[in-house]
């Protein structure tokens, strides 16, 4: 554990809580892609199956359970509790175009051809692209509420901090995890365009982020 890793986990947690609180307080999930949130729930589910097989640390177990619970709570709020506010007509990204290549890749490129390793690899690859339905929705509608953009900022920050964590671990422990690093870098690149808009538009005091 290093400061980049801890800060990354904290910003991931902050992102998820921001989104959950926004939906809960406004009693609306307008502008939120339910598809992205289902994909994130699937990411956590397939990655944290090792909760049943190995014990790593109290921190590790608690964070995994919290991420799982919060992601399922978010999906519940979007599709059940506040489903009337869900903009399904704008959440039209074809998820199968992500799932099929990701499933195929996880069978081809993994550390061991075992169910748990393949599912872990699937979760790493899927996480890299899971935000695409949300970014697609923003592009389609041409705008995003500022709270939604804060959520995306912390989610992108988490990925960027994990890269710093990997650089740190490579230098201090000679440790590297190539599948996680390549996917993490790809995932962070998806956020670059958003980061630019976030800093130039949202933080300069407009309520909403509108696209040019």
């Amino acid at each position: 554990m290093n400061v980049f890793r801890l800060a990354g986990d904290v910003s991931h947690l902050v992102a998820i809580i921001i989104l959950l609180l926004k939906i809960w307080r406004s009693k609306s999930c307008a502008g939120i892609s339910g598809k992205s949130q289902v994909l994130f729930a699937l990411v956590f589910t397939t990655r944290y199956l090792d909760l049943f097989t190995v014990f790593i640390s109290v921190y590790n177990t608690v964070m995994k359970v919290v991420f799982l619970a919060l992601s399922y709570a978010t999906v519940y709020l979007i599709y059940m509790r506040f489903r009337n506010s869900y903009n399904s007509e704008n959440d039209t990204f074809r998820v199968e175009f992500l799932l099929v290549p990701v499933i195929g890749l996880s069978f081809l490129e993994n550390y061991a051809f075992t169910p748990l390793e393949i599912l872990w690899t699937f979760s790493i690859f899927l996480e890299a692209v899971a935000i695409m339905p949300q970014l697609f929705m923003i592009t389609k509608t041409g705008e995003a509420e500022s709270i939604t953009t804060h959520y995306l900022f912390f989610l992108g920050l988490y990925r960027a901090l994990y890269i710093a964590n990997w650089v740190w671990r490579y230098h201090t422990e000679s440790f590297y995890d190539l599948i996680a690093i390549v996917s993490g870098v790809v995932q962070t690149i998806f956020f670059c365009d958003f980061f630019y808009l976030y800093f130039t538009r949202v933080l300069r005091g407009r309520g909403k982020m509108t696209l040019p």
């Binding site: 590790n60 964070m63 550390y111 995890d177």
Partner: peptide, 10 residues
């Protein structure tokens, strides 16, 4: 090195 088990990162 490559591959890690157990996987400590989240």
């Amino acid at each position: 090195g490559l591959s890690i088990n157990p996987k400590d990162e989240l």
